[in-house]
Each structure stands twice: as structure tokens, then as C-alpha cells.
Design a protein around this nucleic acid. Structure first.
Lengths: 342, 342
DNA sequence: CTGAAAGCGCTTACAG
DNA sequence: CTGAAAGCGCTTACAG
């Protein structure tokens, strides 16, 4: 394989100086049409491609965006990663991906590694609460979905979205509800819970009282399954008629527990999730949930990162309620079964 | 933020030349202990971190591995990506990720983009069959799981693994089996099918004959669901007693179709998958499948890439059968129900 | 508008 | 074993 052609080769071929070649390449500076023409044909004749490394060294700026997620095998993060990659591509940037495996140390190490590689900026979906962290970085850093350090956050409006779920379940007649919360050391976990709880409490004042109980777990399948199993192992009259989970994975775990205990969803129990991962539409029954607009979130995060100067304020995006088969009207105990409304 | 210190700063601080600093950094060349000591303390005093870009420009080599997958939201590829990232990290390399969205053009574009960024090497999980492609690359390229161009392939021994499934179903007494194949334009799709079919055919010669029918689909949920629905909509005596799918996603789609049609798995129908994605262990019933050793595959691929000279031969890794609840003994039609063996 | 030249931060023959 | 110097391939003031 012969060596790749450089600006110098192009310059010689076109009979101009390397500076002129560079100016044509950048497209910014004014170059006489004739020279521009010559340079462009030299470029295609030689098959020249700019050396990104040299450019980066000179300008100390690259077109690589670093993304750190807690766990790429988590479907929601995978979707987020896909969206960020697409958003980066739209802005002609590439993506460097790292997974922190939910390890705070690995997260920090990846930040440093990205900095060493002088990325254009870093987007991090934090693992747990790192709000104590006060990090200086020579490039913009944006938190996505979960706050990282003190950096601006782009996320779904968790509280608003959780209230949508509360409205939905209340509207279906549920007055005995269990909430499976996410880890209280995550902002997303706290905000979803608070949004849900405060809406339910408001109903308590303006309408019928709701018995609400809250259990905390991780965002994963296992937590949802375990907590739901506990909840549902009680005698029927002590069971909630609806379980709202802080994540789809928890909700899917809860569906599994319900099935194992032969509790019919949605006729005896309604279950809701949060995220709308692709699996939510594939489980039986299909899961009522909150759709997080991953593409939009990603585009905002990349936008903030690439702005000049980089965005500094938080951005919230509304989630939307997706009603599917896992929720239904409360069954009146010891009474006539309520009609399904559709 | 003050400028980052450079080798020059370190050299001045330590009272040596930049060459010596560089030699200490590389660890290769012999440097007098006393100077080495001085340099090291200068490095920590100044908080010096080497500029990777400059190093890359000089040596035209980086420590970034490019990975292209067809779709990061596919759980199996997500798992593979996580494994590759881990394997890369073990060898002190970072990962640049791109998703081709099953688009051959995007795949090629990503290869070029990686080449432009002078990655150390590229691992690609090809989308569809690209064996026609004869690409020259200035860095090593390895195919993972699915052949890309003519580059060496690291993959599960699909045929061997598929035969494991055939053995399992035959051993359970199934004599009427449907195989949901993957796209015939993928090597994985073809090899899994051939491994399965040839083992079944062998049974036909040495033991009882097996009625086998084959349907082709994509590797996704929808294909599995649709094909299974067709298969299972027939009158009971015309239905297969076992469905073997070429992917877990297809198998999960098939489970869904069976549930919709109220066909009990595994009592009336056995279903098997391939991949052992994490979901396989969470569906109801849990899925009998083939585990692809993602970590091992990833480590081999990275190993081949980083070898000097880069590995050039294919590598096959055996898959293993994971028996779970979705398979059981064939029910004798119009006869006594066979006892479960465990 | 264009060319000649400096310089980004390293590594590595080349002398000594 | 160590230093001085060249050079990786660009971009960008600086003159003209």
C-alpha cells in the first residue's frame, strides 16, 4: 500500500501552496475559483483524504464525541446510544463509547481517557448520584438522563411524566397502588417517585383517597420481580390493584411475578412502566408506559455540547403516556366487574 | 484553565531533554535510574499527561479500536459491544462505536470514517452478506459473528451449535419440527440452518425419520412471531411439535404467537432460540437456547486485531446448549401423555 | 487572494 | 545512555 497523499502532494499536483489547499479544504477563506478548481481536481485525482489526527493536533479539536453509559446492555441505554450516535452523525461527528458498568471509578477513568483523546465533548449518563463531584474539564460535558456532577442535564421531565401515569391509574379507578421506585441515589429515581407521589397526594385532597405504598429497588428486572412478588403474595384484599414501576424493566419483572402467581393482568392487576424500550411492546400483555423521546434527548444533548459557547442550562423534554394492554379499570372487589371501556 | 504541560515542560522541570522524557514514557529504552526518577517526579509534580493526538500523528498508530454493529439496540449486538469494549480495555484500547442500521452503505461509510481517524483496527459485525466486497485497508480488519468482506471471521461455530439443538429436540422425541431460519444472505443464517438440517437428516438415516419444514425470516421478533403464527394456525395434527429458531428474538416472537393462540409451551410445543440474550432467561417460559460466548468471541477478535502481524485465519468458538423451560418431551397425540423426565 | 514559514506535541534515527 | 534535531500532516498568522 503506497503512502496516503498529503496536502503537500495535492499542492504540488495542483501547482499551488499547501496553504491554499488548506483554505480550499476549510471552505472558509476566499480562494480564486480557478485555483479552487485545480485543487479540487488534484484532490480527486490523488484520492486525497485529510489526516484528522494532524488537524486535531494543530487545532486541538476533534470531531469525536465521547459517550459514557452505565450499561450498554440495558435496552434503554442502548437506544439512547443509538440516538446519540445518529445525532452526532447528523452533525458530522463520530462517537466514542464507554460503559461504566455502574462503577463510579470506571466512569471517572473513562472521562479521563476521553480527555486524553481530546474529544470534542463528553456526554455522560451517570451511574448513581455523582452530584458531589465537581470536575473541571477542558471540553464541554453534558449529563444525559441522569445528572453527572454539576454539568447541565438533558432529560425527560421525569416528574411530569410520572404524573401522567398517576392520572392514568387514578382515572381507571385504582385506589390502592404500589409504586416500585428506582434507587433514591439517582435523580431520575427520585424525580419519578416524587412526581408520582405528589400527584397521587393531590388526588387525596381533591378526590378520593388513594392508598399508596412505595418500595425501592434498582432499575432492573430482578428488583421489579422480587418486589412485585412480595406485594402480590399477600391475600387478595391486601394487594394493590395497580403497580407503577419506575422503569420498564422493573415493570416487566412485575409482569413475570404476576404470571407466576397466576394473577391476571390487566383484569386483576394493572402494571405500568417507564422508558418505552422496544421490549415493552413485545411482552404479554404489552406494557403501558412512558415514552422517553430518545432521539430528541440525544439531539438536544449533542446540540448543547456543540453550541458556541456550550449550553449551560438544563433542558427538560416531556414524556408521553403510551397506553397498552397492561392497564385496565380496577375490578370492584366483591361486586360486579367493571365494564372495559373499549 | 492553564495550558496542559507538555514533554518540554517536563524536560525543563527535570533538567533533561525531551528525548529522555519520551524514553521514560515509553518504558522501552534504557534510561539511567536517576534521570528516570527525576522525570517521573516532574511528571507527577506537573500532572503531565501525554498528548495522544501528537503521539498518533508521529507514530501513525492509535489505541482506538473501531467497532461497527448492524444495530446496537439488538440485545445480542449490545452484549457483543459490551464484551468488545471490555476486551479492548483489557488491552488498554478504547472503543469507537458505529451502528450501520443494517445499511450496507452506512457500513462502508463508517469504515472510511474509522480509517480517516486512523484507528488501530476495525472489528465489524457485518450486516447481511458482504462477501463480494474486496476492500483494502491500511489497518487490520476482523469480522465478528458475521463475515465482512473477505476478512478473517471470529464466530461461534454456528453449525456445531445448531446441531446441539437438533440433538436436544430429537432426544425429547420430536419428529415433526419447524425451523425458522435467518436470512439466507447471512453466513450465520446459512450455517445455523445447515448445521441443524444436516443433523436432522442424519437422524433420518440412523433413527426415526423427522418431518422438517423450513421458513425463512429476518432475525427479529416480528419474523419469528409471524412465521410461528402461520405454522401454528393449522389444525393440531398438522402442526410441528417443536419450533427451532435461528435467533432468540425469533424464538421470543414464536413464544408470543403460541401464547396468543393458546398453545401451551412446552407441553404442546417446544421452542428453542439461539444467542442467549439476557431476555432469554426472563421470558415465560424461560427459553432453551444456545449460548454464544460473547466475552470469548470479543477477546479473540481483539486479540487477532492486535497481534503482530494481525491474525489472518478464521476462529470458531463452540456454543453451548442451555436447557430451560421452553422445551419438553413431545406429547404423544391421541395417546398417554409422556412423563416428564425431570 | 496567495505563499512561505512557524508550530501543534510528540518520537526516533543520528551522533557522540 | 543522552541531547539536538528532524519530521509526522496539518492550519494560520504574517507579509505582500
Amino acid at each position: 500500500m503506497s503512502k496516503m497523499p498529503t496536502v503537500k502532494d495535492v499542492a504540488e499536483y495542483a501547482g499551488v501552496s499547501v496553504g491554499t489547499v488548506s483554505r480550499v479544504l476549510s471552505g472558509e477563506a476566499a480562494v480564486k475559483p480557478m485555483l479552487r478548481e485545480k485543487v479540487n481536481s488534484a484532490i480527486s485525482a490523488l484520492g486525497y483524504r485529510p489526516n484528522v489526527t494532524a488537524r486535531a493536533l494543530r487545532t486541538s479539536r476533534t470531531d469525536v464525541i465521547g459517550l459514557i453509559v452505565p450499561d450498554i446492555t440495558n435496552p434503554f441505554f442502548a437506544q439512547l446510544a443509538a440516538s446519540v450516535e445518529r445525532a452526532a452523525l447528523e452533525r458530522r461527528h463520530s462517537l466514542m463509547l464507554a460503559s461504566s458498568h455502574n462503577d463510579r471509578g470506571a466512569e471517572r477513568a473513562h472521562v479521563s481517557a476521553f480527555l486524553d483523546r481530546s474529544v470534542r465533548g463528553i456526554i455522560v449518563v451517570a451511574t448513581g448520584d455523582s452530584s458531589g463531584l465537581h470536575l473541571e474539564a477542558p471540553v464541554p460535558v453534558i449529563s444525559l438522563d441522569r445528572r453527572f456532577g454539576t454539568f447541565p442535564l438533558v432529560s425527560t421531565n421525569h416528574a411530569q411524566a410520572a404524573a401522567l401515569i398517576a392520572d392514568h391509574l387514578y382515572g381507571l379507578g385504582h385506589r390502592r397502588i404500589a409504586y416500585i421506585a428506582g434507587p433514591p441515589d439517582t435523580e431520575a429515581g427520585r424525580m419519578r417517585k416524587e412526581g408520582f407521589v405528589s400527584r397521587i397526594n393531590r388526588f387525596g385532597k381533591t378526590g378520593e383517597a388513594v392508598q399508596l405504598e412505595i418500595a425501592y429497588g434498582k432499575f432492573d428486572y430482578e428488583s421489579g420481580e422480587r418486589i412485585a412478588r412480595d406485594l402480590l403474595s399477600r391475600p387478595p384484599q391486601d394487594r394493590p390493584t395497580a403497580i407503577a414501576a419506575a422503569s420498564d424493566q422493573q415493570a416487566i419483572g412485575a409482569l413475570r411475578a404476576a404470571r407466576d402467581l397466576k394473577i391476571d393482568v390487566p383484569r386483576k392487576l394493572s402494571v405500568t412502566g417507564f422508558d418505552d424500550i422496544s421490549l415493552a411492546n413485545l411482552v404479554v400483555p404489552r406494557l403501558t408506559t412512558i415514552r422517553q423521546p430518545a432521539d430528541l434527548l440525544a439531539r438536544r444533548a449533542v446540540g448543547l455540547l456543540l453550541e458556541e459557547p456550550p449550553g449551560t442550562g438544563d433542558e427538560m423534554v416531556d414524556g408521553s403516556l403510551i397506553v397498552r394492554g397492561s392497564t385496565g379499570p380496577r375490578v370492584q372487589p366483591k361486586a360486579v366487574i367493571a365494564e372495559h371501556t373499549n
